[in-house]
């Protein structure tokens, strides 16, 4: 079977799985203006910068705990990997959000230069998409120049803080045991 055959089989399989899921989900017909306006606001306002920000905030609430409760490795490895995860999330979210936001703002400012010559159904979505794509190119450079060194710097800071906490705890325990 060729690649096209495999891909079309996978597509059919995914389609039938999603059909089955759709059949089991109950109907939802919101009438409240508040709910409908919130859904509308999300559709119009949330794009890749906000997506990156939400992803970063929720990552901070989940990923360090997944690392800290990973019983397959020793305690030191858990602490170091959680510290690196937090550093990576902070560095990645800060640069990812800022660059995406700035490229979309730049497209808004230099609209004439970025204007396509074909009919666009939703100009706002086009600008957000183009901004996100251009941001990816900018991030090729910033991954090396900002993300990696910032992650390293923050990881070292967090590890130092963890070590200081351990040292002060050990000193207190010693004090207690000495009376």
């Amino acid at each position: 079977m060729n690649v096209t055959g495999v891909s079309s089989r996978l597509h059919r399989l995914a389609n039938s799985v999603s059909d089955k899921i759709v059949d089991h989900i109950p109907a939802f017909t919101p009438s409240s203006k508040k709910v409908l306006n919130t859904v509308k606001w999300i559709g119009n306002r949330v794009s890749s910068p906000q997506n990156r920000l939400i992803l970063g905030v929720t990552a901070l609430m989940s990923q360090p705990f997944i690392d800290l409760y990973n019983t397959n490795v020793d305690e030191r490895t858990r602490e170091v990997s959680a510290a690196r995860t937090v550093a990576k999330i902070i560095a990645g979210t800060a640069t990812g959000f800022t660059i995406r936001y700035m490229t979309i703002a730049a497209i808004d400012k230099f609209e004439k230069f970025f204007k396509p010559t074909i009919f666009v159904q939703n100009m706002k979505q086009y600008k957000m998409a183009l901004g996100s794509i251009l941001a990816l190119w900018v991030m090729v450079g910033t991954n090396f120049l900002i993300d990696a060194p910032l992650t390293q710097y923050l990881t070292n800071k967090f590890i130092n803080k963890i070590d200081q906490n351990h040292a002060s705890k050990a000193a207190k325990t010693k004090e207690v045991s000495n009376g």
């Binding site: 559709g43 794009s47 890749s48 997506n51 396509p116 074909i118 666009v120 159904q121 939703n122 100009m123 979505q125 086009y126 957000m128 998409a129 183009l130 996100s132 794509i133």
Partner: peptide
């Protein structure tokens, strides 16, 4: 090309 692919009403695809 970007407008053709993502200028529609389905922002999820672009994300």
């Amino acid at each position: 090309a970007v407008a053709r692919a993502y200028g529609g009403d389905k922002p999820g695809k672009m994300l």
